[in-house]
Design a protein around this nucleic acid. Sequence first.
DNA 1: TTAACTCATTGACTTAAGTTAAGAAATCAA
DNA 2: TTGATTTCTTAACTTAAGTCAATGAGTTAA
Lengths: 190, 190
Amino acid sequence: MEKQIIEYLSKYTVITKELENAITESAFFKSYKKGHVLLKEGGFSNECYFILEGCIRSYFLKDGEEKTIEFYTEEQVVTPANYAKSIPSQYYLECIEDTIVNVSNPGLEKEMFKKYPQLESLSRIIAEVIITKHQETFTKFKTSNPEERYLYMLKTRPDLMQRASQYQIASYLGIKPESLSRIRKRLMKK
Amino acid sequence: MEKQIIEYLSKYTVITKELENAITESAFFKSYKKGHVLLKEGGFSNECYFILEGCIRSYFLKDGEEKTIEFYTEEQVVTPANYAKSIPSQYYLECIEDTIVNVSNPGLEKEMFKKYPQLESLSRIIAEVIITKHQETFTKFKTSNPEERYLYMLKTRPDLMQRASQYQIASYLGIKPESLSRIRKRLMKK
DNA sequence: TTAACTCATTGACTTAAGTTAAGAAATCAA
DNA sequence: TTGATTTCTTAACTTAAGTCAATGAGTTAA
């Protein structure tokens, strides 16, 4: 399992044997059943996760309806917005499949960054890559209509259709479940 | 002018006198006239900017229409997606006002990070804050309709209405200029 | 096995954004 | 200053998403 993390980090820089060992040794894992809630609205968080297997969904309630913010799957990092902060969470984190993660926390992070400054440098680089990806995703979303967004999701993350229910996907696409149903029907005919 | 940068960084951590001096000494500035294009689609970039005064807009062309991605104003950092990369830019960067920036480049950045590791640590932290803000912005956008988005913009960035033209703002809100015009009319009546 | 519940689909209707086109207002340049 | 250009507004029409309600399909638990 450790290999997956090293592989992920190696995309961005060369990981020395020493650092690899340090990561491997300090890594610890947790696994959750489908339906497990990692974080509740109003709750606090001192853990962040690297997904090795499974799917985590972030969502919040607006007028009693669940609004899916994001689906996180294999090779993705989930850092709660209130990670290491003393502010209550605005959203839920829920496993929508049996999920295995590598867990970290502020203490461990700090210690590792101190011991291996290269790791913090790498974190900065990855954070910047994520910013760029977010902006591309957001721009794509803004300049598309619901049907185009659905097609784009099918192209870039086809697995999600199998992994999540349609009402979860609908709000992820910024539309109502009924609309998603109609879009699918419309596209079937073509 | 240097003070603005120090002030910005001080929000996140304590800046030692030594680091302050280093930043101040290495800082250099540029100013551009309204209309100046900093980066063209297809072009390359080796500069990033911290805006001291003015406004920079990022946009691209889709079916001949300008789609505004973002407006950057005072205290914001503009890092082109292809900064320090040998890939052509997907978008334009244009000053929509006379603009004064602090400029950096990969070489200077690297040098400063090497000399002052604390600065790279700070960059990581700021990058993570930006990720969180992006996600909040995106979520707000997805769960709002065009009218709500417009009202939210008026609340959070009211200055933009004076600084940018309506067709620029319209695409920034993910709608057509005609719709923005109608939304404004509708709200006037209320 | 059935009853309860959740989720997805469908239909009728409402609402608002997109489209196209025209004209008014504001801005810019010769 | 005037003519050209750009930007904004308005109107008529089209299209599709939202809303509400009903039904069907699938799942879960007693």
